[in-house]
Write a protein that binds this DNA or RNA. Structure first.
Lengths: 180, 180
DNA sequence: GCAGACTATGTCAGAACTGACATAGTTCTA
DNA sequence: TAGAACTATGTCAGTTCTGACATAGTCTGC
């Protein structure tokens, strides 16, 4: 039973061989907007994936106390990944601290709530600008079957999410300005 | 150091006294779209909150092996909650299985991907319809300071989120129909 | 009066995740 | 040439979360 993190690793390796360090860099906040994980989790998971025969590695002399290990997908790993991709995603519970705070916001000073949402809005607008720059580097959607299709489609999701979130923050600020 | 779950419990108790069972019902998928938790987690957290003096309870004779316990916020619990509400939320890592699958979707058969997104779209549309019914039961946004403001504001977030998500699913389906 | 659904509290094992700690080769630059 | 920054692998303790298991009173309908 491979965890979702395991499939995230397989999905990155499907694009090319990587060290654990490279995987960690690809899945670090905020770069990896599809899945994030710390390097300690990744090294542990790579050992499990290897035990399950889904990945292998080439050891090389290099930095680190155990040298360098370049991981690659095995044929079985690719098969497992392909199978998993179109299985219905198990839904993760929604756990959003800002929404929770909003649920309890009637208890707080409006001015402090306003400041919190102004900060959030600024963060979303900054991320949106960054995603838009990223989108501009594409020449429209790549064809399905091209690995870059995955990058573009997730970027579209991120763009849409940031816009939704920024809109909601603006709505909250409008509500608050009516109450002040 | 109270966890976010602890504050979620405090936020629900701020609206009225509840048993652990009631809290679990309020925070169960998909009802609790602000925070979800299983009852096993809630009972454990209530014991921590009690040890920290943030909640108290009245024991009653009733069902269950230990009778019935109606929990309430203490003055200290209310203070802690108020303080927490406007502190900047610590951001949780984005971990979205559908987005991850999308990232790897270039490996899959387009028809299977299409089916997955069609199912997702249907689920989002159903939830959207439910939220819209819920919204119609409000007579516009309640005033800030009214506990129902929290309900309405989180509902607006949920509405906006479902629309964003449904839009993205439709975009994916459009991309896929061009590739078939 | 009994079965079944609902109310109700709790434990426990295991998985997933976080952040700190430990170690060490390589590359760049002042 | 020394030190800093970067590359690189790994462990570990502690927290959070999930799902299963255990127990028992109350209410409804047949």
């Amino acid at each position: 039973m491979t965890s979702t993190l395991g499939f995230a690793i397989l999905a990155v390796l499907a694009r090319g061989d990587r060290t654990g360090y490279d995987l960690a860099a690809a899945m670090r906040r905020p770069v990896g907007y599809f899945w994030t994980a710390g390097h300690s989790q990744i090294h542990a998971e790579l050992q499990k994936l290897r035990a399950a025969g889904l990945v292998g590695f080439e050891a090389e002399h290099g930095p680190g106390p155990q040298g360098r290990k370049v991981y690659h997908l095995t044929a079985e790993g690719m098969r497992a990944l392909r199978e998993w991709v179109t299985e219905p995603p198990r839904e993760r519970p929604e756990r959003d601290e800002l929404v929770l705070k909003t649920y309890a916001s009637w208890l707080a000073e409006p001015e402090l709530v306003r400041r919190m949402f102004a900060d959030q809005l600024a963060a979303h607008e900054a991320r949106l600008a960054e995603y838009e720059r990223h989108e501009a580097s594409f020449d429209g959607p790549p064809a399905f079957g091209d690995p870059r299709f995955g990058n573009y489609a997730t970027l579209r999701c991120g763009l849409s999410y940031e816009r939704h979130r920024a809109d909601w923050c603006r709505w909250m600020l409008a509500q608050l300005s009516e109450s002040l």
